[in-house]
Design a protein around this nucleic acid. Structure first.
Lengths: 168, 168
DNA sequence: TATTGTTATACTCTATAACTATA
DNA sequence: TATAGTTATAGAGTATAACAATA
């Protein structure tokens, strides 16, 4: 299954990979810490809240949220439980489909997002956007676009999301 | 401390941030899974092993490894213990400085790296380098270079690495 | 006193599988 | 039968603080 003898990566390829991982990893850490410090939310929770906040009714189904946040359903249930306990969201059975759960952001949840957002933007500017500059931002978008598209076409992890293939 | 009213991000800035996070997150996941499947090592462990393998004597001090892997010292100790148990490394007191621990990669460790490497390269090519293309690789390096440099100058997290400030 | 590393502990988060309920 | 979500469980990994030993 593996290539007979994989061509080693050249210096540029290695550098690109390492740079990407170093930058994203640092950024991730910084964002995580800012969110925790300023508003006691994790990155995942912030993503969910921000997404809910921008939804038409401040609502979303669990499944739709799970599509956004890559993780497993049980992981999302865990996060939802945490956020419900914190008063950021409510969960209630969906009206159309009794199987579904509708997640709705509360005023407390909205406030928390507002509270945390300035610092979040600040971190992004300081660590990523300012160093990039306007031109760098444009370049970055163009360069990463095809990578992202390629990733989206390939099933990210063929194991996970297929539910019908129970052929053992 | 926070900006009075943080300028919201424009679409391009948001897109750049999201693209970076999506690409790096997917890549991270894919790499993690490949390493686990092919050789039952985590990404962190692979990084450590790869670094040791490329060291002059296949050796390194714990502290030097900790500088490489961002995490805390205790986290590194944990990983080292796992890898020692798996037979990938040995730990012994350093000759120069009795406080230090010298970590050395074993033949088993080297074999494991070799075993995992082709698949690793394969993933990087498929998900990142091929979509980028030679030109994209170059562009990426140039674009991320200044970001990385800026990050390295700013203390990543001012809280962590200072040991002397016990003022409290 | 500062540095190096380990240990004990507690905590967060994740995935798997089994389960319930609805379509 | 398939889908939506929850729960129980188990595991990996991390950070904090206290610790021992060396410089």
């Amino acid at each position: 299954m593996a290539t007979a003898a994989a061509e080693p990566l050249d210096d540029g390829e290695l550098a690109a990979f390492f740079a990407l991982m170093e930058v994203s990893s640092n950024l991730q850490h910084a964002v995580e810490q800012q969110l925790r410090t300023d508003g006691d939310v994790s990155c995942v929770q912030f993503l969910i809240l921000a997404r809910l906040r921008d939804s038409p009714e401040g609502e979303s189904r669990m499944t739709d949220l799970a599509d956004l946040v890559v993780y497993s359903r049980s992981a999302l249930t865990y996060q939802a439980a945490q956020m419900e306990k914190a008063g950021f969201i409510t969960r209630s059975p969906s009206v159309n489909d009794e199987r579904s759960t509708t997640v709705k952001i509360t005023d407390t949840g909205r406030e928390r997002v507002e509270k945390v957002l300035p610092g979040h933007i600040d971190v992004l500017r300081r660590l990523l956007l300012n160093p990039l500059g306007p031109q760098g931002v444009t370049t970055m978008n163009k360069t990463l676009e095809c990578v992202r598209d390629a990733m989206r076409q390939t099933p990210p992890r063929s194991a996970a999301p297929r539910a019908s293939n129970k052929q053992k």
